[in-house]
């Protein structure tokens, strides 16, 4: 009964992913329905790139940024929770809460004077903005490991590294995953604004449609961007739940 429920949840997630892919690949259907909705517009599709290409650009940017935030955030969180690094925890908490207060669009805009336009500054901004939730959650997760558990690991003769990989990280992983999810979903949203600094992605048709006053093209970017964010959130949320159950 319980496993059946789990199975049906995964079926739902798979169905959502498949739907998203179909929507991204069905260019003729987009053209047909947008023409029907906006009979007055001469062009209803973004002309410089295919929808699938834009979505891949978007996905690649967000994926790479999240991967970097995760690598650095988890490593940093592990270092800070070792005996030598604990002094830094309050500072990290403080910087994380300030980081959360910074508007994402400001981080993106401030990357331009430093790094110019294009893919790299957008990647840097998304990475930096996504770093703090992962770091913060890694610290929280690792600090929540009960001291008795650590004592038991030591008593069993585990070396510090063994205790980290076999005991601490497995206990902390659902919380860490929560941080990765938060940071990735924010990245999907911030990446749409990335089009204004020349990073392409699903924001490109939205911006181009706004400039040329063409609501059809805006929708061609807005609907897939919204769906992608919802699907990414759902998939990562499901992984988080699975990790929670598995521990």
């Amino acid at each position: 009964m319980r496993s059946g429920k789990v199975l049906s949840r995964w079926a739902l997630v798979t169905a959502m992913v498949v739907t998203l892919l179909v929507i991204l690949l069905a260019e003729p259907a987009w053209e047909w329905s947008l023409r029907y909705l906006f009979p007055g517009q001469r062009t209803v599709l973004y002309e410089r790139s295919s929808l699938a290409g834009l979505a891949w650009e978007h996905f690649f940017l967000v994926g790479l940024a999240s991967l970097l935030s995760t690598l650095l955030g988890v490593t940093g969180g592990v270092l800070v929770t070792r005996t030598g690094g604990r002094d830094f925890i309050p500072v990290i908490d403080n910087l994380a809460s300030i980081g959360q207060t910074f508007p994402p669009v400001a981080v993106l805009a401030l990357a331009v004077p430093l790094l110019g336009f294009g893919f790299t500054p957008a990647l840097f901004a998304l990475f930096l903005y996504g770093l703090m939730p992962v770091l913060h959650n890694t610290v929280t997760g690792l600090m929540s490991v009960p001291p008795e558990v650590l004592d038991a690991a030591e008593g069993m003769g585990m070396r510090p590294l063994q205790s980290l990989f076999r005991v601490e990280l497995p206990v902390a992983i659902p919380v860490i995953m929560g941080g990765i999810r938060t940071s990735t979903v924010i990245s999907v949203g911030t990446a749409t604004i990335g089009a204004t600094i020349g990073a392409g992605g699903l924001g490109a048709p939205i911006i181009s449609g706004l400039i040329s006053n063409n609501p059809a093209v805006v929708l061609q970017g807005a609907i897939p961007a919204a769906l992608m964010a919802v699907v990414v959130d759902k998939v990562l949320g499901e992984i988080e739940v699975a990790l929670m159950r598995g521990r």
Binding site: I206, L210, A216
Partner: peptide
Amino acid sequence: NTLQTIPSLALFGLLIAPLA
């Protein structure tokens, strides 16, 4: 929760056509 997940620029874009 779902509404919160939608990127802000996308939500602005989704509202344009119906409001127009």
